[in-house]
Amino acid sequence: MDTPTPRRLGFSFGRLWTIGRNTMTEVIRQKFFYILLVFGLVVIASSHFFAQFSSAEQIKFIKDFSLAAITIFGALIAMVGTAELLPLELDNRTIYPILAKPVHRAEFLLGKFAGMAMLLLFTILLMSLIFAGLLFYTERQLLAGAAAAASVPGAEVSPGEIAAQILQQTRDFALLKAIFLIGIKALIVCAISLLISTFATSVIFNVISSVIIYLCGHLEAGARQASLGDQSPVVRALMRVIAFFVPDLNAFNLADAVVLGQHIPLRLVLNTAGYGIFYAAIALAVALVIFQEKEI
């Protein structure tokens, strides 16, 4: 007890993770989380019921639909969940006893982020598992169908060929790359939303801003091309400003390439992920600076 007070208190991942784990519990207990998660899972599962003309079309549709659902529900959970983290702590005054302990504000804020990030990764994993199960089930069905069709005399394509085609489409490593980047994209959204919540107290404002930034991030690539044309200098300058602050979220969307069966170089995936992590880190750094000075 009589050991002298340390002059400095180092950054502790133990404390960060204590906050993070508690944040996961907190978000899991909220209604919106269940609703979005269950809804996302149902939407993914429902893609099975849109029958297509051919087996190839059917698989393409399931992939396209499910990847889109994982992206959208991942982003929604990230936006709504993160927007509420700080306002809840401040309104309920639960932050006071925590910061009255030897806890750095950075540990608190990054702990909140870490908890939300873990939950997002868990959510995306769960949706991906449902997606994988669905894909596997469809594959079995189609293979059985192909075998049945092949047993009919006079079939044009050999059953082995059809089966190989189906398997090539369903057992596609590129899907993992696509899901990986969806996860990174959700983390960017999470970091942006946390940054906004350090200066804006309104959850609604935060969610709306996040949605706008999200949409801008997707329109960006298209807008850049359009701005090469005969736009006025003002519009072009505006585009450049937006492009500077808003991440190019389209880069994280591999669904089209996956569905078309294009080759996706691992290098590209890693570069894009690196860009995303860098962007999220910048957003978090700014959030830290603001939170450090914030009057709580």
Partner: peptide
């Protein structure tokens, strides 16, 4: 030790007025 340093809080315990903690714990 100046209270702007987080380390100053290693030796102090605080009971807030109308304490609010996480209701789900």
């Amino acid at each position: 030790m100046g209270v702007e340093r987080t380390a100053s809080r290693t030796r102090v315990g605080y009971l807030p007025e109308n304490p609010y903690f996480y209701r789900y714990l």
